[in-house]
Design a binder for these strands. Structure first.
Length: 239
DNA sequence: TCATTAAATTGTT
DNA sequence: AACAATTTAATGA
């Protein structure tokens, strides 16, 4: 199924097109930006590949340029809990990078993805020198906190329709994932892996959400019509 | 550019 | 889990 850390083998400098998709670069001063861009590396991750694993030392601050990743951890009972899906424009690992601690979760590619990495020394240099960068990281930490709390709630909910709705709302968070836009590129199979349901149940849940005018199903993805409806979605199950 | 074919994704049982 | 239907991507004239 998967091998380890192939990202760390074939890596290359990012193209200008890829740099455009990195949301925090435009918050930097020109000199800061030049320095960051020179340090950035990108690599490919095949489906099932781990970008980082629990316990490994932090070497990079990672971001998704293209594709889709899954952030998860195993709890004491050995069950896997998915915290978040990471669409393009999403950056993660700042908490552990800040403290130079080992990773606290696994990041795995759900499909062929392009992942960017900022070496941890450059990460700290930017923290020490750039106000814009600090703002971005602070906002990122704040939003992520809310997302972790939401993930725990989602995990406890038993209604599949609601789980799918909330997970979609999290994936669509414009503060964390400015690269997503109004169309979210995700297949129903990928969403099923993310939420922990079967594909046919996800398919059914999406149909319900479409009937509620919250989304529109499209081939290979979906369009979010009403984000707040997804967030506040409540179970309509019969007793 | 168009037509054909393969591959991916979705809808249903 | 399996199957058919649909959409997209790739190929070559």
């Amino acid at each position: 199924m998967s091998t380890d850390l192939t990202l760390h083998q074939r890596r290359r400098p990012p193209t200008t097109d890829e740099l455009r998709g990195i949301p925090w670069l435009r918050l930097l001063q020109p000199e800061e930006r030049a320095r960051a861009a020179a340090a950035l590396l990108v690599g490919e991750a095949a489906p099932g590949d781990y970008v980082c694993r629990i316990g490994k030392p932090v070497t990079y601050w990672f971001g998704v340029v293209e594709g889709l990743l899954k952030m998860s951890a195993d709890n004491a009972q050995g069950l896997t809990m998915t915290f978040a899906g990471l669409p393009p424009g999403g950056w993660f690992g700042e908490g552990t990078a800040l403290k130079r601690e080992p990773y606290r979760y696994n990041i795995q590619a759900l499909r062929k993805s392009v992942v960017a990495g900022l070496p941890i020394d450059s990460f700290h240099w930017l923290l020490d020198h750039s106000i814009g960068f600090n703002r971005f990281v602070m906002n990122q930490l704040n939003e992520r906190l809310g997302q972790f709390i939401a993930a725990r709630e989602i995990d406890r909910m038993n209604s599949p329709d609601v789980r799918v709705a909330r997970s979609l709302a999290a994936l669509f968070n414009p503060a964390l994932y400015p690269g997503v836009g109004e169309i979210l590129r995700i297949t129903q199979q990928e969403l099923a892996y993310l939420v922990g349901l079967s594909r046919q149940r996800v398919n059914e849940a999406l149909a319900v959400l479409e009937a509620q005018q919250a989304i529109r199903i499209e081939y290979g993805g979906l369009r979010v019509l009403n984000l707040s409806a997804l967030r506040s979605s409540v179970s309509l199950d019969k007793h």
